[in-house]
Design a protein around this nucleic acid. Structure first.
Length: 573
RNA sequence: CGGGAAGUAGCGCAGUUUGGCAGCGCGCAGCGUUCGGGACGCUGAGGCCGCGGGUUCAAAUCCCGCCUUCCCGACCA
């Protein structure tokens, strides 16, 4: 491609809306252009990167045995009503009202894919099968940001597996899981699969693929020694060895304090301390009340300085519901009366590490100090109930956990029977002639988000630096001063057309700009290899090959360029 | 949805305090000089000053309402 023909104009300054460096460069180098918040156009260079990334995904999914399809982006609202997700995903759904009815712009495609394939997967002999598509998704994100990182319209590669039993589902899952690992490895970005929470999609086992990055909006916990890795929403905390319950030192008396203006840990700490009993947040016990799957009342006990992580299957009691339980005084709840009111008490593992606590007094306006575990209150069950922090013990081996800031680039789920039990078409006929539900899996890769992640990972103060596998072009030929020198122009042309003949994806900067501008633009655009043709080297019959990533420049005779480029691109030919 | 900031040429910004010709840099077009790391001179094109209302002889500037964008938070397969 001749750069003079390319629809491209680089910008010297980034539009002020862009904050992330990758976003600034993608705008400045003419890859994308914003239409509205979180809505982007892909210009020629950007589209080529998109195609490269998509093709890597396509190749790996094809070779793990899944088949490409294309589902509609526009869904009749009925399929969302049938699955009940019209309510569950109401916050992100983009709705369309038309003369002919109400529609939803698909944010994900579980409903649509079942409608598309159930007739073809109607017998056990049709299973297993995995299909995928690479398609635009729509989500009304409350806050799109960082360019392609988080947008309202984005491209995702989403796959769906259908199996007749759980074992089959696990096998299909691991095929896609392996393919995902290969896909991200080809893009050369750092990533780790981590255990994850299943959120609104539902289901059981699932992993998120996380790429560590400064601009990440997610965290995952990683164990330094045993390989445990889990998203912060799913990570659990182990316990420390210390078992304070048996410690024989004198235990304090249970004392009530009148603290009327002090609901909540922060205010309570202050109020109790002011009354002469110095107390710190971690010495308090936060008592939350939840309802579990069986509609039982559960009290969750968490150290006062920790954020609670409500286990899946439970939900916290909402404010109006407190009226039903007169013995619960919101802001002043304590565990001392749990037993008499048949509340099941679950405490975080770390609660074992202290013998006594300050906590709510179970009377409006009162807190207590000296509530002794085992004497003043009992715990029915211990489990991890806190959002993990740096340095917490690993739930598997007890070593320290580290939190890593990262971006979610993929997510794989074993859905099991989640959708098949809701959607009546999601079933097949077994060998015995009976109807059975599919065991499903679903899998997503944020294709356009990956462009942002790769760009963010590979850049320097001059611009982008694409890995060869996703770069819009592999090589750019840069004649310096071609306007004045016929020879430079011809040599550059020869090299360029030679590269094209070798099926190298080459670009030539034939724009006849001053050398500084041309070189700066090529650095900004980030094509991995530059062949610089200039008067200095040409005097000696040589040209230079510059490796964008490390800036190294090598002079060589013109004839050697094709061989050298082939080597750099790792091709045999 | 809560808190904050900002909307002036394609991009970056000044001008708004104190109402009085709509400006600067980059980019764009033409001519010339320059030419191995974002050169220079001259000439030129390009504006609904976010939108709507109001005050005023006069509004980018003051007042009211709205919209959009960005940042922080809440939210998030």
């Amino acid at each position: 491609m001749q750069m003079s023909q390319l629809v491209l104009k680089t910008l010297r300054e980034a539009p002020s809306e862009a904050k992330a460096r990758s976003h600034q460069y993608l705008l400045r180098a003419g890859y994308i252009r914003r239409l509205s918040s979180g809505i982007y156009s892909y210009l020629p260079l950007g589209l080529r990167v998109l195609a490269k990334v998509s093709n890597i995904v396509r190749e790996e999914l094809d070779s793990c045995g899944s088949q490409e399809i294309l589902l509609p982006a526009l869904h009749p609202v009925e399929i969302w009503e049938r699955s009940g997700r019209i309510k569950k995903m109401a916050d992100v759904l983009m709705k369309v009202e038309a003369k002919s009815g109400d529609f939803v712009l698909g944010p994900t495609h579980e409903e649509a894919v079942i409608e598309a394939v159930y007739q073809d997967l109607s017998s056990y002999s049709d299973l297993p099968a995995t299909v995928y598509q690479i398609q635009t998704k729509f989500r009304d994100e409350p806050r799109s940001r960082y360019g392609l990182m988080r947008t309202r319209e984005f491209i995702m590669a989403d796959a769906y597996s259908f199996d007749s039993d759980q074992e089959g589902m696990r096998s299909s899952y691991s095929k896609v899981y392996d393919a995902y690992n290969k896909i991200f490895a080809k893009m050369e970005i750092p990533f780790e699969p981590v255990e994850a929470d299943s959120g609104a999609i539902g289901g059981d086992v699932n992993h998120e693929f996380m790429s560590p990055a400064e601009i990440g909006e997610d965290y995952y916990a990683k164990c330094s020694s045993c390989g445990y890795r889990a998203n912060i929403e799913a990570a659990t905390r182990g316990s420390k060895d210390a078992d304070a319950q048996g410690v024989g030192s004198e235990l304090p008396e249970l004392l009530y304090h009148y603290t009327p203006e002090a609901p909540g840990v922060e205010k309570a700490v202050e109020a109790i301390s002011d009354l002469g009993v110095p107390t710190k947040a971690h010495e308090m016990l936060k008592c939350l009340v939840a309802i579990d799957g069986d509609q039982r009342l559960v009290m969750l006990l968490v150290p006062g300085d920790r954020e609670a992580r409500v286990p899946s299957g439970m939900r916290l009691l909402e404010d109006p519901e407190f009226e039903r339980y007169p013995y619960l005084h919101k802001g002043f709840i304590g565990p001392m009366n749990a037993k008499e009111n048949s509340i099941y008490v679950v405490a975080d593992l770390s609660v074992k590490e202290r013998s006594h606590f300050a906590t709510g007094g179970n009377k409006a306006g009162y807190h207590v100090t000296g509530a002794v575990l085992g004497r003043d209150f009992q715990v029915d069950e211990y489990r991890s109930l806190v959002v993990v922090r740096d340095g917490d013990p690993c739930p598997r081996c007890g070593s320290a956990l580290t939190l890593i800031r990262s971006v979610e680039i993929g997510h794989t789920f074993q859905l099991g029977l989640y959708y098949s039990s809701i959607l009546e078409n999601a079933r097949f006929t077994g060998p015995d002639g009976q109807q059975y539900p599919y065991y499903m899996g679903c899998y997503g890769i944020g294709v356009t988000r990956l462009i942002a992640v790769i760009a963010e990972h590979f850049l320097d103060d001059r611009g982008l630096i694409w890995p060869v596998s996703v770069s819009p072009y592999q090589v750019v030929v840069v004649p310096l001063g071609a306007a004045r020198s016929k020879e430079i122009e011809e040599v550059a042309e020869t090299i360029y057309s030679g590269l094209l003949k070798d099926n190298v994806e080459a670009l030539i900067d034939d724009r006849k700009l001053s050398p500084g501008v041309s070189l700066a633009d090529c650095d900004l655009i980030g094509v991995p290899y530059q062949v610089v043709v200039g008067s200095k080297s040409l005097k000696e019959g040589q040209v230079e090959i510059k490796v964008r990533r490390d800036g190294t420049t090598t002079k060589m005779p013109i004839e050697e360029v094709p061989t050298r480029i082939r080597e750099l691109l790792g091709r045999s030919l």
